[in-house]
Simulated scan of single mutants.
Amino acid sequence: MTHIRSHILAALAVAGIFVTAPAFAQSSTCQEGQKILQERQSLIQQVNKLTNGGKNKKLDPREACTIFSKLVTNGTAGEKWMTANKDWCQVPDQLVQSFSEDHKRSQQFKGQACGAAAKMAEMEKRAKQQAQQGGGAGGKMGGGLTGTLSIPKGAL
């Protein structure tokens, strides 16, 4: 996770360079790109909060799926915008390449997070079904604390 953050932060640093470019400030089309990058920066901050700055090894896959889904949507819009406006808005090639690489990593993380979230949802669904059916496996000691055990009578 730290790896993606360093690349994204580098991309945002490069983005800061072209944010101040004269053509960028003059064109409403170029300002659209600035909005996309600001939204992306906000989403990255959400990812950082979710991971507690890289210190939290356990993530809630549902939260991660939601944030990475938004990040992927933002990345798709950003790539489309950069392709269409690269020359007009003086977007450096390094930023386009870095942004594209980060977008691919975001797609991978989204796939992993959403896959884990789907598995969690399925497990929770099964657990609820088993709870509704009286604990699932019945029989002697099979139902957890509700099972019965008969003690043999006679001399041991």
Rank of each mutant, 00 (worst) to 15 (best):
E63F: 14
Q26G: 12
V72A: 13
P61D: 04
K57M: 10
V47G: 07
G53D: 06
Q46V: 12
K70D: 07
C65W: 13
F24R: 03
G54N: 05
H7V: 00
S28Q: 13
N56K: 15
F18R: 05
C65T: 06
F18S: 05
L12D: 00
L50F: 06
Q31R: 12
P22L: 01
R62W: 06
S27R: 10
A21R: 02
T83D: 13
Q31V: 09
A25Q: 10
T76V: 13
K80H: 12
E32Y: 09
G33W: 03
L37E: 05
K70Q: 04
E63Q: 15
A11N: 00
L37R: 01
G33V: 07
A25V: 05
C65H: 01
G53R: 02
S69L: 09
V19W: 05
T29L: 10
I36L: 15
T83I: 14
G53F: 00
T2R: 08
I67W: 11
G75E: 01
T2D: 04
G78M: 06
L50Y: 07
A84F: 10
R40I: 14
E39T: 07
V47R: 07
L43K: 03
G16I: 08
S27N: 12
R62P: 00
F68G: 02
C30M: 10
A10I: 06
V14W: 02
Q41H: 12
K58M: 10
A64H: 06
V47E: 15
F24Y: 02
K57H: 11
F18K: 00
L37D: 04
G75D: 02
L71G: 06
L9W: 03
V72Y: 00
L50G: 02
L59G: 03
